[in-house]
């Protein structure tokens, strides 16, 4: 899932300083699962913002809504009539959702309420870790199901580098060395000899480096566009 974290409260309050009535918009997708921007977080942040502004003697009306997903245009139809009446929308969705809100309501100010962190997994309650960098050309077949692009601090393809010790990365004792994990897993699978092969220079054009990406599947597109 996409993992996000609420922005610092002062930053959010700064965004909203000139507004009297906003919509605080949650998303039922990834940010609900990672406890950053679902219905409950909307409720909590809504209270916090209202209290912070009440304390300043400048009340803020917070319309609290959470929709199925903010990354699909269809779900905005249900709130369109309410959006008319607010000064701005504070979106708690990931960067994708925030941009979709802005696109769906071109005349409305849209503020980001979260920092989108990474694509990751929930390891424990309150603990998430990065797993994928959406590089566009998966190499997990060669690396025992452990991604060196996202999980090696240097994204190298022929690790571990000389900074790997006791299974940890030179960057931090809290960070597992991805290549040590790959080595251990391939050893367990009886495939460690495959690490003798030099993985070739990566074609980064499939990643962000090739420019903004777009996927079109001719087999799925409809004439009407909808």
């Amino acid at each position: 899932m996409i993992v996000a974290e609420r922005k610092p409260i002062d930053e959010i309050l700064g965004f909203l300083s000139k507004h009297q009535k906003i919509m605080l918009l949650g998303c039922g997708g990834c940010v609900t699962v990672c406890l950053a921007g679902g219905e409950k977080e909307v409720g909590i942040l809504g209270s916090e913002l209202a209290m912070a502004r009440a304390k300043e003697g400048r009340p803020l009306e917070v319309v609290q809504r959470t929709i199925e997903r903010q990354c699909d245009f269809e779900y905005f139809e249900g709130i369109r009539h309410e959006v008319k009446d607010v000064d701005a929308i504070l979106s708690l969705a990931c960067g994708i959702g925030i941009q979709t809100v802005a696109e769906a309501f071109p005349d409305k100010v849209v503020w980001p309420g979260v920092n989108t962190k990474f694509l990751g997994v929930n390891q424990n309650v309150g603990v998430w870790a990065e797993r994928c960098q959406a590089c566009g050309q998966c190499v997990l077949d060669k690396t025992g199901g452990i991604c060196p692009v996202a999980r090696c601090s240097k994204s190298i393809f022929n690790g571990p580098c000389g900074g790997s010790q006791h299974g940890k990365c030179e960057v931090s004792a809290d960070t597992d060395c991805a290549w040590a994990l790959i080595h251990d897993r391939l050893t367990r699978l009886g495939q460690v000899d495959s690490m003798r092969e030099i993985l070739p220079v990566k074609d980064w054009s499939h990643s962000r480096d090739g420019g903004p990406r777009k996927l079109v599947r001719e087999d799925l597109t409809l004439e009407s566009g909808k």
């Binding site: 409950k40 409720g43 209270s47 916090e48 209202a50 209290m51």
Partner: peptide, 11 residues
């Protein structure tokens, strides 16, 4: 109990 209940009450 939930943070949400506390916060709504504190309003």
């Amino acid at each position: 109990i939930d943070v949400l209940y506390f916060m709504k009450a504190m309003e």
